[in-house]
């Protein structure tokens, strides 16, 4: 898959995002890393121009419940309903539902094993192959847990 790993907002801590980038590359994916401090508009444009299938958002600054739903909305209004969105970083349990409601399909916190993330992506590939709703703007029945 072509996957964009992005750091939205004013958050400069990207060690985690870089590690994820490496893990996904080693699992055979083409990974585009955006660098830090990207706006929702920029991230959406990158998704469009790179024709990416999935977007991983890393957030450690606490702005996730504002920025991540905004990015999901932008993707939907740009006709990218089929794009799969997952998130990682420091996202407290009580904020998870807001993100899931926006179309995020998985949230990976600290201590997540790298295999879990690659298994999630295999499942995503599988679902897409079988035309099951997985994208940010598709039916919200399924999520990874």
């Amino acid at each position: 898959m072509r996957i964009v790993i992005a750091k939205p907002g004013l958050d400069g801590h990207d060690r985690g995002a870089k590690v994820i980038t490496r893990i996904l590359r080693d699992a055979g994916h083409e990974v585009i890393y955006t660098g830090i401090r990207k706006t929702p508009e920029e991230i959406t444009r990158i998704m469009i121009d790179e024709d990416a299938h999935a977007l991983g958002l890393s957030s450690l600054s606490g702005a996730h419940q504002v920025l991540i739903p905004k990015i999901c909305e932008k993707l939907k209004s740009s006709n990218m309903h089929d794009v799969v969105v997952f998130a990682g970083g420091i996202i407290p349990e009580h904020d998870h539902q807001i993100l899931f409601d926006s179309g995020v399909r998985a949230i990976f916190g600290p201590g997540t094993h790298s295999n879990t993330i690659t298994e999630f992506l295999s499942e995503v590939e599988n679902r897409k192959l079988n035309k099951m709703p997985t994208g940010v703007g598709e039916d919200l029945g399924w999520r990874w847990c």
Binding site: T21, R22, L24, R25, D26, A27, G28, H29, E30, V31, I32, Y33, T34, G35, K38, T39, E41, E42, I43, R45, I46
Partner: peptide, 18 residues
């Protein structure tokens, strides 16, 4: 080995995203 790729060029191109 894995067939994957790390594509990081655009992060170094200022103004490439906006």
């Amino acid at each position: 080995k894995s067939g994957g790729a790390l594509l990081g060029d655009r992060m170094r191109m200022q103004g490439s995203d906006s």
